[in-house]
Design a binder for these strands. Structure first.
Lengths: 90, 90, 90, 90
DNA sequence: GCTTGGGGCGTTCGAC
DNA sequence: GTCGAACGCCCCAAGC
């Protein structure tokens, strides 16, 4: 392990500097989790709004899911082509 | 698959306006899901960076989780206090 | 909870009858896990054999995965149609 | 390179024969994966049935896992005994 | 050893 | 409100 990456994984006293970095990491993580929760909340609202306009949420979800699968499949196919290419070049 | 909404096979034809709203909903949902995925990605990066500085990711996650529980608990308690206060004042 | 489904989830003494059923469940599970392990072993052998004939295992796996995605997507689409149908009928 | 292990990793077209073998491999793999999925499904059913009779699934899994470890350990010990035996007899 | 895939677990969402 | 099912998250193990 690099000198600037000491292990704090067990039986260590954490230095003041490490403490500061730890605090910073925790804050960044908690901020991001808040963001994520906010986005999830927005999603729920959109579904709710759609429902309020008469759309079937279940169907909506499935449509989104299928479109997601489409994209995933396309990505996989592109990755496969990449594999083929690299296999040929190798 | 065609971009437009699938046609229903009975006399329930979706109006052009409804079609537009549907499309809008789908787009908003997909945009939000992308956001969510991006945030998740950022989270992974932060954990990865922390790991690179020697912090134990598993422990880090536990700490975040515990702090979250603490906050939830405090909110509950504050709500309860509010309730008592209002009961007294009322 | 139903009378014929008592909870053995904590601080209970297990009756002789329950003991017998438990033993039976464990045996069935272990038998199935053996089967599963055997199938996994067969799979490994097939991949190994394919590799021995010059095929790229990584590509093979990806092809299988993509075909699986195809099927899953088709199933989803069929399910979506079902949903549409039921929505119309409702 | 040996005739029975041609490389498909560079600039060749896959022969009809190779194509046939490839198809065969894919089919065997997919058949085995179906088997595996079926067994997994059976396992789920058994756990579900056990749950219906009041057993705790999580604990059940742990028990199975521990027994598996025990058996592995016994096999190790038996192998060690075999080794000692052969050493003595040799 | 590092990363990628599989399995288990908890949570969340929809159905009844 | 309870139930089961689906989803994402996390851990572990195997492969490169």
């Amino acid at each position: 392990m690099a000198d600037d990456a000491p292990s704090f994984q067990s039986d260590d006293v954490i230095s003041g500097a490490a403490q500061g970095r730890l605090k910073s990491f925790i804050e960044r993580i908690e901020r991001l989790e808040e963001d994520k929760a906010a986005v999830s909340e927005d999603l729920k609202e959109v579904y709710s709004e759609a429902k309020g306009e008469g759309f079937d949420v279940k169907i909506l979800r499935k449509v989104v899911r299928i479109r997601k699968q489409d994209k995933a499949k396309m990505s996989e196919e592109e990755a496969l082509i990449e594999l083929y290419m690299s296999a040929i070049e190798g």
